[in-house]
């Protein structure tokens, strides 16, 4: 058993478990989970006060808003607290890798997003009508969470203050989220604009979520998956380098 614990893979899994459990404990204690639940309650309110009984068509849009903006915010806020309390310094002089630290945060984000998905789905299942592929939805929420967690890291370590972090989140929403939502609800039309939307990762995210309910083309689903996973991998390389510099600046005695 002692020998097993010295193997790199086993060590990484053990560290990930400890970091993830710690992350969940802190998300709860710092009331970040509570804030996420409040947002879920707001989404339930939206579902409740919708005139239609069948909420299948608006369900992906609510999940889209949650999985994108909340993923960025959760990472940003939890890292902000760690910077503020200097616990990042303590973490990076303990036997963990930066990769383990980042993965534990991404898993925490996924759990939080899936929690919202389950709450909304249960509400829709019991009190409204809903007809979509829940397993695909879970998979797509994970893909979207991972990508937006990366954006969260990028904003968190580039922001010098909480205000700067929030400004970053708002900028992302204005540039990437709102245009896609406006197109979805029919405010933005025209071939040129709708074609340009495909450059936005948020468009890819919404396509994936929509594909669980209606006729999204197969190529659009494949594009969505490939685009988000590809961008996540690319961002992970960029973030890793920037993160090294961030740790050097934040750490030490």
């Amino acid at each position: 058993m002692i020998f097993l614990s010295t193997l790199p893979g086993v060590r990484a899994v053990k560290n990930l478990r400890v970091l993830f459990m710690g992350e969940m404990q802190r998300l709860q204690r710092y009331h970040i989970i509570a804030a996420s639940l409040v947002v879920a309650v707001i989404w339930i309110g939206v579902l409740h006060f919708t005139d239609v009984d069948d909420v299948t068509s608006i369900f992906p849009l609510l999940l889209f808003l949650d999985a994108t903006s909340m993923s960025i915010t959760l990472i940003g806020v939890s890292m902000f607290f760690e910077r503020e309390e200097h616990t990042l310094k303590a973490l990076f002089v303990s036997p963990i890798t930066k990769g383990e630290y980042m993965i534990s945060k991404i898993i925490g984000n996924i759990v939080s997003n899936l929690q919202t998905l389950v709450i909304l789905y249960l509400y829709a299942w019991f009190f409204k009508e809903i007809n979509l592929n829940i397993f695909l939805l879970v998979f797509y929420v994970i893909v979207i969470s991972v990508f937006h967690s990366m954006i969260g890291f990028l904003l968190a370590y580039r922001s010098k203050s909480f205000t700067e972090l929030l400004t970053g989140v708002l900028k992302y929403m204005f540039i990437f989220l709102i245009p896609v939502v406006l197109e979805q609800v029919g405010v933005i039309t025209g071939d040129l604009l709708t074609n340009l939307m495909y450059a936005l990762p948020t468009k890819a995210a919404l396509l994936l979520l929509n594909s669980t309910t209606n006729g999204v083309e197969t190529w659009e689903v494949l594009y969505g998956i490939a685009y988000l996973i590809g961008l996540s991998l690319l961002l992970s390389v960029v973030i890793r380098k920037g993160f090294e510099e961030f740790v050097a600046k934040e750490s030490g005695i």
């Binding site: 802190r26 204690r29 309390e85 200097h86 616990t87 310094k89 005695i253």
Partner: peptide
């Protein structure tokens, strides 16, 4: 072991 000058604790734990 590294002992920092400034507190490095999770304040809500």
């Amino acid at each position: 072991g590294v002992g920092f000058e400034i507190p490095v604790h999770f304040s809500k734990l």
